[in-house]
Design a protein around this nucleic acid. Structure first.
Lengths: 224, 224
DNA sequence: ACCAATAAATGAATGGCATTCATTTATATC
DNA sequence: GATATAAATGAATGCCATTCATTTATTGGT
């Protein structure tokens, strides 16, 4: 069996310092490599050293293209925002568009919860694709007759729910097992058992659906 | 002016190694010291070394009482859960009880967002006070006529919203300023401007109220 | 065609961090 | 009184992000 052709990005070639013919690194390449690394080693494996190794460069070289590791996380966040499905706004009824948007938003970020603290406080001016998502959603709300002064608040509320629910997806299945304390919390234990008994969908999906439909119904009533 | 009596916890006395008359450290003391440290230096200042310094011990001494820094965060989380107001369950109408619980929950954790990734996936068996909160809320839902098999899902949904909203509180005021990209996102920019114009409450509070009332209304309809 | 400025890489620090471990010793237990 | 144990010390360890002086190929100006 012949050795597989090594990926150019992982080339172990000892390069000399100095300006190369073409730049090896750029923000897109860093983003892609970071995504690969995360999918193979998880966020614990995402270190500047590991990222550099994936790209076949010295760690310090990264700092010519990003100002910090947080900057890498912002690049990731913006990349992922572009994967959120806003296509139903403008082509489907408002309720269904919101539903698709929220589910897809949750699904994308449930695999990337370490980015949530970043995105939740990130000024949109630093994240063009994220901003594009907001534009599409805002237009969808406006066209559906939503009063303009309430659009941002409604989006922020749905987003808050989405981020919290994204964490929920990653929780262990037995998170609500009270263990030895079970007899001290009878109502809670009974409710947990009852859910397990009568519900065969993923509990996290049931909760998300329940909350999202309440938000859609409640906000839908605001439309003129 | 006489020198103030130094807090025993901050005593700089050079202690000899070995078992003291009474243990200096325990989990309560560690929790209290961690809260002090956070309120003075923030979560960035919460290091095992700084925590040990606050308590007047060597960093390694902490590991006789907690197994890791994450363990400290769990102690903090559980301490804070006990500060969440569940008192209205049983004494006030369900809607009002949920409202008070959710606002208080959000307010407590908005000052402690670095704990959210911990609590969101923390098995309740490791957090007795958190469990007690769930018990009170569950009983409140049951007594209000909520179908038992939906109680946990509803709580999980509200909690997701609360956690997301807690992050939102910490966001910078100009988070939605699109800057130079403003002309590329006209609908979004218009909606942001309109909100700023017509709304004088804290935007984060407006969004929280909007979402929470929708959830309360939606879930209220599930009661028998 | 040269020359200066620049972009983009290297690799060797640096300082901070959580955590581990061998050691010490006062107290509690048999 | 001997022994085991709990709870402290302080010195390592290894990982991490980040900085800095240095190198050098390319670009743009004269």
């Amino acid at each position: 069996m012949p050795a597989p052709t090594p990926a150019p990005s992982a080339s172990p070639v000892r390069r000399r310092a100095g300006r190369p013919t073409a730049a090896i690194l750029d923000q897109d390449g860093i983003t892609t490599a970071a995504l690969e690394l995360i999918s193979s080693k998880g966020y614990d494996g995402l270190t500047m050293a590991a990222l550099a190794r994936t790209l076949g460069v010295a760690p310090s070289a990264l700092y010519n293209h990003v100002s910090s590791k947080d900057d890498v996380l912002v690049l990731l966040e913006d990349h992922l925002a572009a994967m959120v499905d806003v296509s139903a706004f403008g082509s489907e009824p408002w309720e269904e568009a919101v539903r698709k948007w929220a589910w897809s938003y949750r699904d994308v970020f449930s695999e990337h919860t370490p980015l949530i603290p970043i995105i939740a406080v990130l000024p949109v001016a630093n994240a063009p694709k994220t901003l594009a998502m907001y534009e599409a959603v805002t237009a969808g709300f406006r066209d559906a007759g939503f009063p303009e002064e309430k659009i941002i608040s409604a989006i922020v509320a749905i987003e808050a729910f989405v981020f919290g629910a994204a964490y929920d997806v990653t929780a262990p299945a037995d998170i609500f097992d009270a263990g030895t304390l079970a007899d001290q919390v009878p109502n809670f234990t009974a409710a947990v058992d009852r859910l397990a008994l009568e519900q065969h969908e993923r509990p996290t999906d049931v909760a998300f659906s329940l909350g999202l439909e309440a938000l859609i119904t409640g906000f839908g009533a605001l439309r003129g």
